[in-house]
Design a protein around this nucleic acid. Structure first.
Lengths: 188, 188, 188, 188
DNA sequence: AATGAATGAGTGTTCATTCAT
DNA sequence: AATGAATGAACACTCATTCAT
């Protein structure tokens, strides 16, 4: 596929789209996104073939940032719970540090805009901290799809981000309590 | 005098709206909703002043059904865990028995369509099984807003409904495992 | 033609329509008119075959009231200018005393709702104070259609009502000045 | 770069709107206006933010043409009555030469579509022939708002245009008689 | 006779996408 | 490559009129 001219414009569009989604939902018009990105309306469609493709890219772009941060947060040599806690903290921290990207992802996740390809790429990118195999094979989750445990994990983490963001002065408390709730579920 | 306004049409519209939301999201056109309900486009607006009002009613209508089922499921005389399990089961069961209403509610809950009035009515309808006070005041949730525990609970329940619906032959297993995960979080 | 049951309802509808036109223009919905009249939406169409017919009746109804008042205001025995002044005053006074009907007429007069029949009836009702023949046959108006002089007369009178209504404390002044302007035009 | 927005299309829309207003009143649909202008429905809203804005522009556009013609018609060095007559003739002539624009303005003037901004611009554009101050300060109009005299003047002029247009063979006669009527009112 | 529920064509406006410049 | 003018199918909502009750 041909590389577009300006990587900078592409990033502007992704960022502008995330902002627009935060403010106006996934129904935010492409004209608004283009304006926020400082490009012409038509230019958006030279970087992304359609609005749907743009929104899928917004999701994956931010998901990559999130998983990259998460992946860098732990050391394989650390004991299991410590690794889990590190991953948990990096997830919450990224959500708090990137509220626009995080909220855009949350919005996109509940629509039917995300394609099967996006979902597949998302699954591929999910960071392997060695947690999945060892943790979620306790009496509760054993024998069930890994995705079931993942879904619950993300759900609890999302609730934690939401409340931690809403009460900034109690961020650390929500982070810790959220982790404890999560850990209660997945520990052996 | 004249024809009374038809409760049947009202129900048709609520049901048609829920179906349309499942298929096309909250952006489903009112014309589609009316057509599915078997009424003229204009008729929709004689039963509901606006699309927004209709969607709020869809949410509350299904929420009332859900909480009515939940409320009928437990006996105050039963011990705590038994009550919790009964409420849990009735919630999951309702979601499985009413997939359209359940999915419509889920979609509506993540948009900003629901008004403060709807949220207030929702809170008022929440069935008091004596769980909230006694359960979610353990070492994890004590001192944090009740809503934090509620949000996590609903998140786990939603994941359970989702997977139980997707694998009908393992419904009972998901219900049980989901409850155990939930109970691990909230028990003292 | 069959007489409708209730003359009272008919008058209510005419009055309600005039009020609605004042507030919302000729686009005022029939449902609003019916509600203001205290009757059901459908009832309006049992008294008037269509909205257009109702509005034409509103015009003629008020025009009849206006010309009746005007016609009663002068004595044929009085000298010309006195008669003219009496007619003038009664016109302005009626407009001030019946602002709703007057404004409704003004609105209706500038739309194309009024039919040729209504215009013909209007011309038939125009009060003959002996002014038309004797006054508007001066050097200016002689040889031109009577309607030309009438149109100008009504235009000047309308402006007078408008300003007299807007500045109630100077009503008498506007009435007098307006008459003098009119009289300058039509006197021999 | 890209196509510039077409002044021609803008003029087409203004003209089409004036025609539509003449035929169907201010309630003429924007779709009809667009069709008459030879553009797509959506295009109208790229040139004017709303129907209301378009109609205000129709008024001002024609008012500018009218006042430009009027302003060019007189010489400040001429005596008062001659200047007045020149202005009067140019006003009537413009109305006769531009019946569509003139009628559209007349319709718009009696609705509540014209905004305060439009009214202000209209006042600003009013050509100063030195008439207002010297003419309409005779015994009749002195001490009353200038707008009162203006309103009456316009009313008489409108009646003149209307009849002159209806009887083209007597145009000059109506123009002259109308001016004489006007002059009788305003002369000292 | 009176009601008001029901209708569906019509309204102003939006917006993803195309394409002439 | 970049622009933004142009498009026209939707969309939410209105309303004069009909007709079952």
């Amino acid at each position: 596929m041909s590389r577009p001219k300006s990587e900078e414009k592409r990033l502007s569009l992704l960022q502008a789209a995330a902002e627009a989604i935060c403010e106006r939902g996934v129904g935010a018009p492409t004209s608004l996104i283009a304006k926020r990105a400082g490009v012409a309306e038509g230019t958006l469609f030279r970087y992304f073939p359609s609005k749907e493709a743009l929104l899928n890219e917004v999701y994956l772009f931010n998901y990559r940032l999130l998983t990259t941060a998460t992946r860098a947060s732990f050391d394989r040599a650390d004991p299991l719970q410590q690794r889990a806690h590190a991953v948990w903290n990096s997830y919450i921290d990224w959500g708090l540090a990137n509220p626009v990207g995080y909220r855009a992802m949350s919005q996109l996740a509940v629509t039917d805009i995300l394609t099967a390809e996006t979902r597949a790429e998302e699954a591929r990118l999910f960071p392997d901290a060695g947690l999945r195999e060892s943790v979620a094979t306790n009496e509760i989750f054993t024998g069930l799809p890994q995705l079931f445990a993942d879904t619950i994990l993300v759900a609890v983490a999302s609730a934690t981000v939401k409340f931690a963001a809403e009460y900034p002065e109690r961020t650390d408390e929500y982070k810790l309590r959220g982790f404890r709730a999560f850990w209660r579920m997945v520990e052996q």
